[in-house]
Each structure stands twice: as structure tokens, then as C-alpha cells.
Amino acid sequence: MDNTPLVIVDKLKKYFPISKGLLFQKQTGFVKAVDGVSFVIFHGETLGLVGESGCGKTTVGRTILGLYPITEGRVVIENFDVAKAKGVELHQLRQKAQMIFQDPYASLNPRWTVSAIISEPIRVHHLVQSETEKTERVKELMQLVGLSPRLINRFPHEFSGGQRQRIGIARALASQPDFIVCDEPISALDVSIQAQVVNLLEDLQDRFQLTYLFIAHDLSMVRHICDRVAVMYLGAIVESADKDELYEHPLHPYTNALLSAVPIPDPKKDRNRQRIILTGDVPSPINPPSGCRFHTRCPIAKPHCKEITPEFREVGSNHWVACHEIA
């Protein structure tokens, strides 16, 4: 890991239009899925992005890779401006930045063999000269992720969930990327398989100096695998810090509540823990609350939190937070 940013995200917004009516669609508003998010990811680093369902994690991941058009703001990956990349540049960007998807079942084409799935990026990016070289490369990749190359002509449904996720990882690695967005790569897997996949991702990172954006809602796993962590709530980042700092000295009341809600697999310790139970549900991103978005559920909210949006500012070394009540 070094100190030059590989990915720069600046005041990124992604709004999805909502429309009514079938024939004459009338736009009635926006889902403000990502509403002004800024962060950088350094070379070789793993940045964790955590938060509750629907807070915009996947949308951040897809938008920074250019899979969704950017509504506002700027994303730079390896000196490519994602919004402006076209033609050759876009092609290079697609090769350098890849994604591993949330659902190992839905993200693989069921009618393609493993060979076809893994070799697609190799083909698209013309990374080999011949058919035999391509097959060799696919087998190499399968070996790398712990799949037997003998299974090269099988179809996705013939594999278990963990194996399918490995196919997805092999596909992501095929174009020799520098940066991978891992969108909940282990959520759909059984506990006993999760550690296998996490260890694999770590080994590959060491071997190929990969940089990861690791999206997850499992906060224990994020502490394990990430270097830095950013916490999202309703389309915005509310806190970010180096991982041990964040887990040991959380500042934002939402981070505090989130961390205190994670069960610890140790009965004696878990029983004696102070839990902060948040009341109510996450508000809608169509009409997010005014001022601080968290004020409707915040245990320490003051009247001004409803009026003024808190600025995301650095309060300690590398520790950023958006809250009026933090000195």
C-alpha cells in the first residue's frame, strides 16, 4: 500500500428518476441513492463501505465504475475521468476496474460454460493471441481461485454457491485489473464458506497488488479485511477512519448504534454489552430528512440538527465525521 490515490470520488451524486404513468411517463421525483459522497482509495488498500440495506452502497460501486451515468460530481480511477472516458480510454478503464457481484447466482449467465464466462473479458480486451492460449489462461485462473480446471466445460448450476462466487472472482481477475469493487462478495455464502472466499481475496490482493472497495453489511468481516472503513447512511458518508480507530473510537451516533448492534460470538461478553437500540426504520431516500439525515433516529439530536446539514470534516488524524454534536 502506498500513499497515492488510485480512486478519487468527489461529491458524487446518483439520482434515479421516478416516473408515473405508462404511456406518457411523467417524472415525479428522484431516488437520491447517492447524494454527495467523497472519498479516495489508495494503491493496494482495501476500503470498506458499510451501512444498512438501501443506503446506496451498490449504487456507489456501480456508479464509480461507470455502470450507471453520474448525476453530479467526479470520479477518477488511475487518471481516467470516468464520466468522460470514451472509446479507447473507456476500454482501458473497463479492463483496469472490475466488479464482483452481490449475488453469485444471478450474476453468471446460466447458459454459458465456466470457460465462456471466465474468458469473456480476455476476449473483449484481446489479451491473448490464440484459442489454446485462452484456454490455458482460463485454466490458470481457475486454479488461482481454487477451482479444478477439469470443470472448465461445466455450467454454473452445477456448482455450489462458494464455487460460483469463485467463478465470479476468476472472471473479475481475467482482465488483470488493478481495482475491484467487491459488492457483498460473501453475503450469499454459508458461514463455513465465507472464510474461504475472504482468504482467497486477501491472497490475490497480496499477489497482484490489488486495490479493493469492499462493500458489506457484515461489520465483523469488514474489520477483518479492510484497512479503512466508511459508514454510509441514506446516501451519504457519515464517518470514515482507519479501521481500528473506527471500531475502537466511533464518533458518529449512527456508527455507535451500528457497532453496538452487531452480535459478538461470545455469550458472556455479549450479555454484558450496552446496546444502543435505534427506534424506527430508515427513512426513504426519495424525501430524505432535512438537515442531518440521521436526526429522525438519532439519540442525541438537537433542534438545529433538523435545520442544518452537518459538514463532513476531519476531527482527528484521518478520522472524518459529519455530526454537529462532535467537538
Binding site: S192, A195, L219
Partner: peptide, 25 residues
């Protein structure tokens, strides 16, 4: 044992790689 060993802990600093159970059910 394997299950407990393969779980990361939110209340501890990382001290090792996870110990995975090989294979699948």
C-alpha cells in the same frame, strides 16, 4: 470448532487470517 474459528470478531483487532473449513457440505 471450525465455525467459531472461521468467524471474524468485531471486538478484537485482527491477529491472524481466518481459519477456513475446507470443502462444502
Amino acid at each position: 470448532r471450525g465455525l467459531l474459528g472461521s468467524l471474524p470478531r468485531i471486538d478484537r483487532r485482527r491477529d491472524r487470517k481466518l481459519i477456513a473449513i475446507p470443502g462444502s457440505p
